[in-house]
């Protein structure tokens, strides 16, 4: 059985945020609620200051703590290793948002940081969904059971690895390479759009897949491995000593980095 996973090469990533935009368009995301975000870090002080960045989708963990805490079973893991939310079962208790160590879950009922509030500009005429974007995926792809489409009100949402795409991939596919025209439509939007080709998507259980080769040969690293969640998104840090830290409020404020 396939177990989908992603590899992100930080030496190739330029921090352009095209992945964020592609995800927003593909999944009708609200501003500031990016399933796929790029985080920025400033390290050191002049003259040796440095700007780094980290693209951060959902990690689709092997042992997802968000799934463990969900009191209704709305968050579940598919047989091919993807963590999804059943929007028809989610009660909006937000415990999964508390339990996710990576901060990649979103509850749209909050005050918008940008103006105008896009939800008021494009309201859903039926009042069931968070908004009704003028650009959206075809209606027949809306599937609440796998958390794909426009987010309904009062539920939690997250990156699906574009499950509406990858679940249609031909059986036995080991790498979803966007440069292959026959596989492009089955590949996650962020992977397709990545201009420097920093993202790889494939079967983590197939020893001959490209993702497995990269993880083995370029020392693939997982974020916050000590939590035991065992992410299925790996980072290739190259010559960098480490991936940027996770919670750094004090250090950035006090200039300790």
């Amino acid at each position: 059985m396939t177990r989908w996973g992603m590899v992100i090469d930080l030496e190739k990533c330029t921090g352009c945020q095209a992945c964020t935009t592609a995800c927003q368009m593909e999944n009708s995301r609200l501003p500031n609620e990016n399933w796929q975000d790029v985080l920025f870090y400033n390290e050191g002080t002049y003259p040796s200051g440095k700007l780094t960045w980290l693209p951060r989708p959902c990690m689709h963990c092997e042992k997802p703590s968000c799934m463990a805490v969900c009191p209704t079973g709305a968050t579940y893991k598919t047989a091919d290793g993807v963590v999804l939310v059943d929007w028809d079962r989610c009660i909006g208790c937000k415990y999964c948002m508390i339990a996710c160590p990576y901060g990649v879950r979103f509850y749209a009922e909050e005050k918008q940081k940008s103006r105008p509030d896009i939800r008021e500009v494009f309201p859903d005429p039926e009042g069931e969904k968070v908004w009704s974007p003028p650009w959206r995926m075809p209606d027949h792809l809306q599937n609440n059971k796998i958390g794909v489409g426009i987010q309904p009100k009062n539920v939690v949402s997250k990156c699906t690895f574009c499950y509406h795409r990858i679940s249609k991939a031909p059986p036995g596919t080991k790498d979803l390479d966007p440069s292959d025209p026959t596989l492009r439509e089955f590949t996650p939007a962020c992977v397709v759009t990545c201009a420097p080709g920093a993202r790889y998507f494939g079967d983590l259980d197939d020893p001959t897949s490209e993702v497995r080769r990269l993880i083995a040969e370029k020392r693939g690293t997982r974020l916050l491995d000590h939590t035991g969640n065992r992410p299925q998104v790996y980072y290739l840090a190259g010559e960098q000593p480490a991936i940027p830290e996770t919670r750094t409020v004090r250090r950035s404020r006090d200039g300790e980095a």
């Binding site: 009191p71 209704t72 989610c90 009660i91």
Partner: peptide, 19 residues
């Protein structure tokens, strides 16, 4: 809570003993 009435059936049906 987002869906209090849904909670009434989703909690007992879910049987999420690990939560």
């Amino acid at each position: 809570i987002g869906h209090p009435f849904r909670m009434l059936w989703a909690l007992p049906v879910g049987m999420q003993w690990h939560s």
